[in-house]
């Protein structure tokens, strides 16, 4: 497999508050006048205490909520590097174009809750940490004792 490089730098535009995940696939890549057409309205709080928003897209009613990325994590918008040095047709080097600290995700027809995949996906971070944290001799002895 060809080498890939991803350059994660905390620079570029901060897109916090403007990153939306929709429950559909828009078959288009490129800029769109989102702020002129997509008008989320704050709409109270759910039973679980999540602040809710409401918006319409292509006639569908969407219900959404904004989720902060966990401490120590950032969202990155990447673009392929186009430096003359990597003039190879299929360069696999990526550069940071923008960053974000939250995602607003939208459901079609149901109220957002902590049971939604978007929230649950972040459980992986806790699991990954447990899996990848260095294990100390003390950890080992206590766990073998427990067994």
């Amino acid at each position: 497999m060809e080498n890939a490089t991803v350059d994660l730098k905390p620079h570029g535009e901060d897109l916090s508050g403007r990153v939306h995940q929709l429950p559909c696939c828009v078959k288009h890549d490129g800029p769109a006048s989102v702020s002129h057409y997509f008008k989320p309205k704050h709409n109270g709080v759910s039973d679980e205490g999540l602040p809710l928003q409401e918006a319409h897209f292509r006639g569908r009613l969407l219900q959404g909520t904004t989720l902060q990325l966990p401490q120590g994590y950032s969202g990155f918008v990447l673009a392929k590097k186009t430096s003359p040095a990597s003039s190879k047709q299929n360069s696999n080097s990526w550069d940071t174009k923008a960053t974000f600290q939250d995602i607003t995700y939208w459901n079609h027809d149901y109220v957002p809750s902590h049971n939604d995949e978007m929230f649950r996906a972040f459980h992986w971070l806790t699991v990954a940490k447990a899996l990848h944290d260095p294990v100390t001799p003390e950890d080992l002895s206590s766990s073998s004792f427990a067994l």
Binding site: C24, C25, V26, K27, H28, D109
Partner: peptide
């Protein structure tokens, strides 16, 4: 116009 596919 751009095609949009929905989960529903």
């Amino acid at each position: 116009v751009a095609q949009v596919l929905w989960e529903s």
